[in-house]
Design a protein around this nucleic acid. Structure first.
Lengths: 329, 329
DNA sequence: CTGAAAGCGCTAACAT
DNA sequence: ATGTTAGCGCTTTCAG
């Protein structure tokens, strides 16, 4: 495989000139440029990025850290990231931690070893201390989940307010016994959404019943099903459920359907994220729409700017309550 | 940031010795090894992969090319790939083509530019000619979809047989008017599954009705819904539908539900892939289970062996018909 | 506008 | 067992 040296010889110029042509620099006469391009074509030359990477100390690779690739919420964000970075000649390395610290460390090492130019972290289970340390030397952005008080820039939504609106909607249509299907309260978004849930109840004079609050440390249909089983067996059975993820909500919905109960008449359900699936259930799921694609685009731009050394500001984006069949028959 | 040179000085040894310690080579005394490790710790040294990559001409990065990240079918395969390659210190670069040749070319260039050591392609819309050309010089494996007659190794299932079994199941439970919801027939798997559909009908003395055969060039719920609308309007309405993807089947199922028809009494539906969500629909979807995770593991091992220069053989894995509520009440 | 040459950080062949 | 050194392919400074 040809290298820049051979191209230079073939074209009868120096390697510096070839490099200039390759990098589209101006101060090359059309004539020599043509010469070089001819040589490139003749030799089927393809520049070797390994040399360039070492010289420029960059890889134009960005790490995207997520807990689990199976959650469509992240995929939509990733689409936004990918479409943004590709136009700037960056590529992404998808890193699924599975909430496993060992994996996390492997990915952190990738940055320390200069194999990636920056990180967008979306993993709520990430080791905050490590991440903050890393952010002293490397470009890091957080997306969706973030570390309060760190100066790692982030893009997210107002989780507390979104949860508040979701639960308020349930109250407005007459529900009083409302269960919360939460994620692990070690995660910021889980704590924030719980606060929103509590505020909605309190503002409407509904006492908070701890028996109605459930936690799972993983997201997935099966966990929603499991929790719903417990909810259905509760003595004073709730008439509505607010789940902090569409995945949980969809599992819950399946469980209610299987038991032959009617949604929303027997049980109303609200989810969170507005993943594509949420419109395919029977009935369709009422949910909070997050601007996932847009979050991805913004996170990507923030990271690229950060890599360039610019100062970047955190952002909080809008969300929207989407009312569908699972709360209104 | 420290480099190997500085570590060598700090430890009072040569860079070669440091390199030996780094790469865990044997011929270093415990004493010097300790010396080097101390220096590494003291300087917070992290090896720079860019130097190593150039020297070794490898990146330990593998390209995974898929049409669309939103199809859980691919995600399950990717999990298999990732878990396999990570233990061998490889990482994956997820490349979504969106069936766009421009994107495809960007990813091909990544390999030509030595930014990746090999490719696992799962994109049925990929440019076969380019891929075959590329495979002359670079390590390439195909997964699920493959190019007949090329010598690019692949791992897949017997699509024709799988479709045959799916349709035969429908016939066995009494259906005669069976629609096919196919993907684009430019794709091999689509042609193969159509053959299976036709064979099942023919073997059972059912005439093939071209009005019952539909195509979509993209997979997604919405396409399944659209086609189902057409099917429901057919003069001699089919009593069953075989969809070549769970995504299409789920969209179809949603459409039938919305119209107030009963599944499986009015319309039975069979999907393909057994994605997680296929068990969350109402009723759950009868489908063909593909061993996705296993396919990923095998594809990954094939690619790594290919990179090592070993000879690798194509494989055809087993599938399974999973009967659930959408065909049997 | 073009060329010569240094050097990015690492590994490995060769020498001791 | 350890050191010396060349060189992977590229970009860029400096000189002309």
């Amino acid at each position: 495989m040809a290298n820049i040296q051979q191209v230079a010889e073939e074209a009868g110029v120096s390697v510096a000139t070839v490099s200039r042509v390759l990098n589209k620099q101006k101060n090359v006469t059309e004539k020599t440029k043509a010469l070089v391009e001819e040589a490139i074509k003749k030799l089927n030359y393809e520049p070797n990025m390994l040399g360039r990477n070492l010289r420029n100390s960059e890889t134009r690779l960005l790490l995207i850290i997520i807990p689990n690739i199976s959650n469509p919420f992240y995929l939509e964000i990733i689409k936004g990231i990918e479409s943004t970075v590709i136009s700037q000649k960056y590529h992404i390395l998808l890193c699924e931690t599975d909430s496993n610290p060992d994996r996390e460390n492997i990915y952190f090492d990738l940055v320390k070893n200069r194999m990636a130019d920056g990180i967008i972290s979306m993993d709520p289970a990430i080791n905050g201390e490590s991440l903050v340390n890393l952010s002293q030397k490397y470009a890091i952005i957080q997306c969706s989940e973030y570390i309060i008080g760190s100066d790692i820039p982030y893009v997210t939504i107002d989780n507390e307010e979104a949860a508040y609106r979701a639960v308020k909607h349930l109250i407005k249509i007459g529900h009083k016994r409302i269960a919360l299907m939460n994620s692990d309260e070690r995660f910021l978004y889980a704590r924030q959404r719980k606060l929103g849930y509590q505020r909605a109840l309190e503002e409407n004079g509904i006492a908070i019943n701890d028996n109605y609050i459930f936690q799972t440390n993983r997201l997935g249909f099966e966990y929603g099903q499991q929790i719903m089983k417990k909810i259905l067996n509760l003595p004073d059975r709730p008439t509505a459920v607010f789940a902090v993820s569409d995945l949980l909500a969809i599992g819950a919905l399946k469980e209610v359907n299987s038991k032959g109960l009617h949604i929303p008449n027997d049980i109303a359900i609200v989810g969170f994220d507005k993943i594509d699936f949420s419109n395919m259930t029977h009935p369709a799921l009422t949910t909070i729409a997050q601007p996932m694609y847009k979050m991805g685009v913004i996170a990507a731009n923030m990271l690229i700017n950060k890599i360039k050394g610019e100062k970047v500001e955190s952002m909080i984006l809008d969300h929207e309550l989407v009312i569908r069949g699972s709360t209104s028959g």
